[in-house]
Design a protein around this nucleic acid. Structure first.
Lengths: 201, 201
DNA sequence: TAGCACATGTAATAAGTTACATGATTTT
DNA sequence: AAAATCATGTAACTTATTACATGTGCTA
């Protein structure tokens, strides 16, 4: 009768737990920490973060620590042993298949309507990817240097290497594809602005 | 006072319009068409598709065509001129920045809790990516052959090439990273099952 | 005649973003 | 004194998935 709850994974909770592995934090700090470490492939908003913290405390997976007085030096949360266990249990479960969605590819797929304009978008994507790869190069060096010796370092670097490799291959693809779209443009007659004449095809 | 609506892009609508570029279809066929063409980087459920079709008809961007009788040979929708214009206007707008979320990378980032198990996940990802690259190779050949001569072919192939290049680079990264995680495993002492002894770090 | 493919839809639920609301403390 | 940063939260809304509900027509 009632639709059974699809029981999702509540990943925000595990992200919070995982970030607390690096030490206690309040909600605000947690967000900064997320942005500066896993920000390249994950993000959380306060609208998710604060409710998650409350729930986790109720469930005993995090505990408050320190004295809450005024704004500065606010309440901090730390992960509990139960929290560590819960996090580990999630980490070892195989990742849920993620439905990928790529809006740029969608526009490329529909590029017959405006090959030149889509070509420009793809070129812009190439430039952004190149810049991103350079940024990740710098980040890689910085992190290697700053947390040298930490046992988790290879894992952290691996996530940066992922982004870097992805950006590089995206840049290459985008440059090839932009050229392809240019060829489509010159192969086809000039297009009407908004008035369509013949439906084509 | 009232929170103003954030006005999102309603991308399902444009996906529907774009798919109708290939000819009229009913909701069921639309979904098949989506799965078999852009399914590698986009997907739509009936819960999105049917309401979108109704709205698009109300807005005059699609029109019904043919006779609805029984289940087989149902009502079909075709894109209107207004629909083409709306689609083109969307296609030429730069894509919205998409918040990326990658659960595997999250688990890699937290791998210190269970490096061996995460290593297995990464190895599995490598195998899947290799298989996927092979599948996309075959698809590329198939599509090249089957729609030879169509003006949009280069754009369609580009989307396949994107997935293929991404899969290949993912496979390489995953194999490197799995090795890295194995090294972490052997560098660290055996882990307790659920009971934590010392917090470490 | 059973099962599968065709076909359309809704309700419940989940996840996430954005805007709003509020106020303390530090820095310029 | 003003501006920036620190800090916590909620309400409204959008997007999307899943499960349910229902029925037809073809094929083995």
């Amino acid at each position: 009768m009632s639709a059974t709850a699809p029981r999702r994974e509540r990943r925000t909770r595990y992200v919070v737990l995982g970030m607390l592995l690096q030490g206690p934090a309040n909600g605000y700090e947690l967000r900064q920490r997320i942005d500066s470490t896993i920000g390249n492939f994950w993000q959380e908003s306060y609208g998710q973060l604060y409710p998650a913290l409350h729930e986790l405390r109720e469930d005993g997976l995090v505990a408050t620590v320190g004295s809450a007085t005024g704004a500065r030096e606010a309440q901090r949360y730390e992960i509990t042993l139960a929290g560590r266990d819960a996090l580990r249990a999630w980490v070892v479960r195989p990742p849920q298949p993620q439905p990928e969605r790529n809006e740029l590819l969608l526009k490329v797929f529909f590029a017959e309507l405006a090959p030149a304009e889509v070509g420009q978008q793809v070129t812009r994507a190439a430039d952004e990817a190149t810049a991103n790869a350079a940024r990740l190069d710098a980040l890689h060096a910085q992190v290697s240097e700053r947390v040298k010796g930490h046992p988790a370092l290879p894992a952290w670097l691996a996530t940066i290497e992922y982004g870097r490799a992805g950006s590089r291959v995206l840049a290459e693809w985008a440059r090839r594809t932009a050229a392809e779209l240019d060829a489509m443009t010159s192969a086809q007659p000039a297009r009407r602005s908004t008035r369509a004449k013949k439906p084509g095809r």
